[in-house]
């Protein structure tokens, strides 16, 4: 009866494991590529939906150890964002992509494929290559990048990018010399000045240099550049500004991705660069498993208007102190159909909403109430040791289906969002953690 009322969900444990094949998109009206927007598939970095899936297998022990590493790295990212929001003015970005290379960690981030540049086709190329070419006889070079709504400067590794100054990547290195539409940003240009804290002087030939210092000490440096970016099947963003990295030392980028697509609120981000065309509106859907696909959309194509009634809305807050980050106000949490008994004042601080922070963090008073309600609904399962900051974990060995209490987040204005089962557990642990203080 509770399940029917939406208070609980019954999940077959088999559905929580990635399949060996890509189940593709769950398509609703309007959820298809459109000439009026930029629409691109979004996938886990590894798994059957990735264009270049990994063949590596992980043992259960590997997964447990790597999940702890992933959560530790995520905490560093969260700490860094909190520092930025207190007014710290350094130029570090909140990257917490792990320097370790386990399978589990790689599943904590989401990637999309973009085409960069225009490479002239030789006449001897195959029919397939010709089919992919642009009308002017050139084609883009596919690059797999992490999407990050918590940073502002996009970049990819560019030739030359020797190891170990750079990291291995699955796609061929982008070669500016082979692109007919590539240009370095001149040092004296407005685009170079707009780099602000990410500007790193000029090269000997007066090309604008960029540098990003990530929160964990990693860096990416190189030449700030223009080239055409193709996202999805229809649209080309001409003169996209991005970092052409020739070194990303100390790197947190052991992922074999080409770089990062920045969707933050700062002036350098893709969102701001495409403001005229797409009106500073973008959306994404993160897939529940590595065997399913999500999407990234820039703009609002008219055919998506029919979806509007199915959206709930809450005010989006921004801060001139840290324009990179997007924030919302959480007002209440409902567990198994019952609101937590938490004074509204506990939720008075905002929450950063971010595509690359993995675990949600709540004020301690709210977290403790959530944990108590969740544990009380999960007493039929064996408890398991904590994993890093995740202190509510279970041993589901031998369990064929899990009865999970529903969790809904209620945002300012009454927007109530029911979490998917994939949004409640990370591995076998409740995927929430507390902040350091209710007063943060």
């Amino acid at each position: 009866g509770d399940a029917a009322a939406g208070a609980y969900m019954v999940i077959a444990t088999s559905t929580m494991k990635p399949k060996t094949f890509c189940s593709g998109h769950k398509v609703a009206p309007g959820d298809v590529p459109s000439p009026n927007s930029t629409w691109a598939p979004l996938h886990h970095l590894y798994g059957p939906c990735s264009p270049a899936p990994s063949s590596a297998n992980s043992t259960a022990a590997d997964v447990a150890a790597s999940m702890a590493d992933m959560v530790d790295d995520d905490q560093r990212r969260a700490d860094y964002i909190q520092k930025r929001l207190t007014g710290a003015t350094d130029d570090k970005q909140p990257m917490a992509f792990s320097s370790r290379t386990s399978q589990y960690e790689k599943n904590g981030q989401y990637a999309t494929n973009g085409g960069l540049g225009s490479v002239p086709h030789l006449k001897s190329l195959s029919t397939t290559a010709t089919t992919n070419s642009a009308p002017d006889g050139t084609s883009a070079v596919t690059q797999t990048v992490i999407i990050d709504s918590g940073s502002d400067v996009s970049w990819v590794q560019c030739k030359p990018c020797p190891l170990p100054m750079c990291h291995r990547q699955r796609d061929p290195l982008f070669d500016p010399a082979m692109s007919t539409t590539y240009a370095a940003v001149p040092c004296t240009s407005a685009a170079c000045a707009q780099l602000g804290p990410y500007r790193r002087g000029c090269s000997a030939n007066a090309q604008c240099q960029f540098g990003i210092n990530y929160g964990d000490g990693s860096t990416a440096t190189g030449t700030y550049s223009f080239d055409d970016l193709t996202l999805g099947p229809y649209d080309v963003i001409r003169g996209f500004r991005f970092g052409c990295a020739h070194a990303d030392r100390g790197s947190a980028f052991d992922y074999d991705v080409a770089g990062s697509l920045a969707l933050g609120g700062g002036s350098q981000s893709l969102v701001q660069q495409t403001a005229t065309r797409y009106g500073r509106v973008f959306s994404y859907c993160l897939p529940p498993t590595a065997s399913s696909l999500g999407f990234l959309v820039l703009g609002v194509p008219p055919e998506r208007a029919q979806l509007i009634p199915s959206f709930v809305s809450t005010p989006l807050l921004s801060s001139s102190m840290a324009p990179t980050f997007y924030r919302v106000l959480l007002r209440a949490i409902i567990v198994a159909g019952r609101p937590l008994a938490v004074p509204p004042a506990v939720f008075s601080a905002s929450s950063v909403i971010d595509s690359s922070t993995i675990i949600s963090r709540l004020p301690p008073t709210a977290y403790q109430a959530l944990r108590a309600a969740f544990r009380s609904a999960m007493t039929m399962y064996r408890a398991a040791p904590p994993v890093s900051i995740l202190d509510t974990c279970y041993d589901f060995t031998g369990v064929r289906s899990i009865t999970l209490p529903s969790i809904a987040l209620v945002f300012d204005g009454g927007a109530t969002v029911n979490l998917d089962a994939a949004g409640i557990l990370l591995g076998s642990c409740l995927a929430f953690a507390p902040t350091a203080s209710d007063r943060m």
Binding site: K26, A28, D31, A78, I81, Q82, L85, L263, G265, V271, G279, R280, V281, F282, S283, Y284, C285, L286, P287, P288, L293, G294, F295, L307, S310, F311, V312, S313, T314, P315, L316, L317, S318, Y326, V328, L330, A349, S351, V352, I353, D354, S355, T357, I358, I359, S360, R361, L362, P363, L409, A415, V417, L419, D420, A422, G423, I424, A431, T435, M440
Partner: peptide, 30 residues
């Protein structure tokens, strides 16, 4: 601040509508 992490965003369509100062959500979108 707190955080709304990417685990909790799974299967939601999350719309960042900057000019309207609105964040929109749609469940079971992917």
């Amino acid at each position: 601040p707190g955080f709304i992490g990417n685990v909790q965003q799974k299967t939601l369509e999350v719309v960042y509508d900057v000019p309207a100062k609105a964040m929109r959500f749609r469940t079971a979108a992917c």
